[in-house]
Simulated assay, not measured.
Amino acid sequence: MTKTKVLTGITTTGTPHLGNYVGAIRPAIEESRDENIQSYLFLADYHALIKGRDPKRIHQSGLEIAATWLALGLDTDRVTFYRQSDIPEIMELNWIVGCMTAKGLMNRAHAYKASTQANQEAGESDLDKGILMGLFNYPILMAADILMFNANRVPVGRDQVQHLEMARDIAGRMNHHYKTRFVMPEAVVGENTAVLNGLDGRKMSKSYDNTIPLFVPEKKLLKLIRKIKTNSLEPGEPKDPATCTLFQIFSAFATEAEIAEKRKQYEAGAGWGDLKNELFEYINTVLTEPRERYNALMADPAFIEAELKKGAEKARAEAAPFLQDIRKKVGISPFA
């Protein structure tokens, strides 16, 4: 039976946090264990260059992200786990499909339109001021990532759905003009995907500097959890779990029975201090073993590099012959 190909990219611009884990990492690892799924997971380090300007941070982020996925149980024998920059075929495909991509299509990309809108509101006469080609061409590279492996499904946030539609448009133009065999990828928007709030009550995001890194030491984890914003209700006063970040985070890790018991504590007026300490104890117990594995992996970057090279070999074994077929179809091949 043909397996469904699912592709997920992780941009190497930050340290994985609790929100990343419950929203993307955990479901992707669980899905990769499905016998009917063929998973492709990659470090999107070329994409990171669009916003990242610190070479050391991008490099360190890649190491942290790879160690995180491995520490949480990703089976690299079951999946194709690779670094984008280790697959030169992707960048060659990026150029080929870019030559069949209408500039008007890229003009409609949300990120580009937002940047030109910001310039207009600032009174700039040049609406393209400060906009780099990496941002403008981002959807083309994303299309190359997806089409290189003919992914059937791509889990994305709502803000990325447009890019999947663009990838389909590009694939369709290639298939029509050159008779290539690109699969039409489908965006998968997780309607029930857990989204965690951060320390300040907004969505947990490095952009807001409100994250709880996944594998910080115990003392730091406790300190961060105690910083989570709560209201001024006193111990003994009933509290609404539906509006509480502490309850939201707990619910993302706990069982249904544990969640029901915790809800009773809120209704009975448990104090914020106790609720924060209990959340720390619960989360810390869940993360203790993965944290130990993560620290061991971070101390052995050669092992991580070997795992990524193994994934790159697997990826290139598929990408190279596919690209050769595409090159031939567009007219780039030996004369004899």
Results as ranks from 00 to 15, higher is better:
residue 250 F to Y: 10
residue 153 R to Q: 15
residue 316 R to P: 04
residue 23 G to K: 00
residue 37 I to S: 11
residue 64 E to F: 11
residue 12 T to Y: 04
residue 174 M to I: 01
residue 175 N to P: 05
residue 334 P to M: 00
residue 254 A to M: 09
residue 290 P to D: 06
residue 244 C to T: 07
residue 274 D to S: 14
residue 254 A to P: 05
residue 160 Q to V: 04
residue 215 F to N: 00
residue 91 M to P: 05
residue 36 N to A: 15
residue 44 A to C: 05
residue 242 A to Y: 12
residue 51 K to S: 15
residue 312 A to N: 04
residue 177 H to C: 09
residue 157 G to P: 03
residue 199 L to T: 11
residue 284 N to E: 08
residue 233 L to D: 13
residue 1 M to I: 13
residue 40 Y to H: 07
residue 324 Q to L: 14
residue 128 D to Q: 14
residue 48 A to F: 01
residue 151 A to R: 06
residue 32 S to G: 10
residue 116 T to F: 08
residue 318 E to A: 12
residue 268 A to F: 12
residue 267 E to L: 14
residue 131 I to A: 09
residue 108 R to I: 03
residue 331 G to K: 08
residue 71 A to G: 03
residue 236 G to S: 07
residue 13 T to N: 07
residue 27 P to V: 03
residue 161 V to M: 06
residue 140 I to N: 04
residue 40 Y to N: 07
residue 168 R to P: 04
residue 46 Y to W: 14
residue 18 L to P: 00
residue 222 L to V: 10
residue 319 A to F: 06
residue 25 I to A: 01
residue 309 K to P: 04
residue 61 S to V: 07
residue 325 D to V: 12
residue 125 S to G: 14
residue 275 L to K: 02
residue 102 A to L: 11
residue 293 R to T: 09
residue 127 L to V: 13
residue 147 L to R: 00
residue 249 I to A: 06
residue 301 P to N: 10
residue 116 T to N: 08
residue 332 I to R: 10
residue 334 P to L: 03
residue 267 E to C: 12
residue 51 K to G: 14
residue 265 Q to L: 14
residue 43 L to T: 01
residue 84 Q to R: 03
residue 217 P to D: 01
residue 267 E to T: 15
residue 181 R to D: 15
residue 299 A to H: 06
residue 58 I to K: 04
residue 274 D to H: 14
residue 144 A to D: 01
residue 136 F to L: 07
residue 291 R to Y: 08
residue 302 A to D: 14
residue 5 K to H: 13
residue 102 A to E: 11
residue 229 K to H: 13
residue 209 D to A: 13
residue 118 A to R: 06
residue 90 I to M: 09
residue 272 W to I: 08
residue 43 L to R: 02
residue 130 G to K: 07
residue 231 N to C: 01
residue 259 I to F: 10
residue 232 S to H: 13
